[in-house]
Simulated scan of single mutants.
Amino acid sequence: MPLLTPSTRIPAARIGAALAAVLLAVLLGPPSRGEAAPRPAPSADPGVVRWAVQPSGSGGPTGRNYFTYDLAPGDSVTDHVGVTNLGDRPLTFAVYGTDAYTTTDGAFALLPSDRAATDVGAWIGVDRRSWTVQPGKRADIPFRLTVPRNATPGDHTGGVIAAVAQDGVTADGQRVRLDQRIAARVYLRVAGEVRPAVTVESVRVDYDTPLNPIGRADLTVTYRIRNSGNVRVGGTGAVVVDGPAGWTLSRTSPVDLPELLPGAEFTVTERVTGVPPALRLTATVDLAPTTVDTALPPVQRTASVWALPWLLLAALAVTGAWLYLRRRRRSTAAAPPAGPSAASAGPGETSGTSGAETAGPSAAGEVAGGAAPRVR
Rank of each mutant, 00 (worst) to 15 (best):
R64M: 03
A283R: 02
V48D: 06
L211M: 10
L86C: 01
S32W: 07
A117R: 03
R327P: 04
A117Q: 07
I161G: 05
T291G: 04
P153G: 11
W322M: 06
V81D: 11
R39S: 14
A25R: 10
G158F: 05
P30I: 10
T209A: 12
G365I: 02
S331L: 10
R189Y: 07
A345T: 13
A283G: 08
P148C: 13
T78Q: 09
S344G: 01
D179Q: 11
P213C: 08
R175S: 13
T332P: 00
R175H: 14
Y101M: 01
A139Q: 14
S362C: 07
V221F: 08
A116D: 13
G136I: 05
A163K: 03
D218G: 15
V194K: 10
G369D: 07
G320L: 11
P31V: 10
D206P: 06
D256S: 00
R224V: 14
G346R: 05
G159N: 06
A18V: 15
R39A: 15
I124F: 07
L287T: 00
P373K: 13
R271S: 12
R224I: 08
A13E: 12
T358F: 07
R271W: 06
V299F: 08
V95A: 12
A107E: 15
V190M: 10
V48C: 00
A116M: 09
V22P: 01
E193L: 14
G106M: 09
G369Q: 07
I124V: 15
L308M: 12
S7Y: 02
A18N: 10
G34C: 03
P61A: 15
L4G: 00
F67I: 00
L110A: 11
D172A: 13
S351A: 14
P210D: 05
E357P: 03
